[in-house]
C-alpha cells in the first residue's frame, strides 16, 4: 500500500464519519421517554394509532376550521362531536404539556408552533 501515512488516517475518518450517531450517543444515552396518559379518559378524539400518526394534521385541520371557516364542532370518525379547541378539549385530558406533548416532541425533535399563541395548562394555572 502506498501513502499509508495518509490512507490509514483517511480510513479511520471514514469509519468515524459513518458511525457518527454511535459516538454521539456514547456516555449520554437516555431511555426512550414515556408520555403520561390521562388517567380518567381512555379514548381520544380518534383512535390511538390515528392520533399517534396524524395528530398534527388534525390540529392543523382544526385550526383552519375555526379560524377560516368558523366551524367550532368536529365530528369524529365514531360520530361523536367535539368542541374544536386545543386548550379546552385536548388539554382538558392531557393536562400537562411538559409531561405529554414535550416528551415526544423533544425526543423526535419537532418544532410545533402551538404554544407561541396558546398557553399550556401548567402555565395558565400559575396565573390564576
Amino acid at each position: 500500500m502506498y501513502n499509508a501515512d495518509k490512507v490509514i488516517p483517511g480510513i479511520i475518518i471514514l469509519i468515524l464519519f459513518f458511525t457518527l450517531p454511535i459516538w454521539l450517543n456514547v456516555g449520554r444515552l437516555e431511555a426512550v421517554p414515556e408520555v403520561e396518559l390521562p388517567k380518567e379518559e381512555k379514548k381520544c378524539v380518534e383512535s390511538k394509532e390515528f392520533m399517534r400518526r396524524e395528530h398534527m394534521k388534525l390540529l392543523d385541520d382544526w385550526r383552519i376550521k375555526v379560524l377560516r371557516e368558523n366551524q367550532h364542532v368536529y365530528l369524529s370518525g365514531e360520530g361523536k362531536n367535539f368542541k374544536i379547541s386545543l386548550q379546552n378539549t385536548c388539554m382538558k385530558c392531557h393536562e400537562n404539556k411538559e409531561k405529554f406533548c414535550d416528551k415526544c416532541h423533544n425526543f423526535v425533535v419537532t418544532h410545533p408552533d402551538c404554544w407561541t399563541c396558546h398557553i399550556a395548562p401548567e402555565v395558565a394555572k400559575k396565573w390564576k
Partner: peptide, 29 residues
C-alpha cells in the same frame, strides 16, 4: 437524520433541523 439515531439529540442537529424548517410552512413544516 441523526435526530433519529441519537437520544438526546445533539444541539447542533436540533439547530440544523430548526434552520432547515425555517419557513414554517405547513404542519409539519
Amino acid at each position: 437524520h441523526i435526530r433519529l439515531f441519537t437520544n438526546p439529540v445533539p444541539g447542533f442537529i436540533v439547530r440544523l433541523d430548526y434552520i432547515d424548517s425555517f419557513f414554517h410552512l405547513g404542519i409539519p413544516p
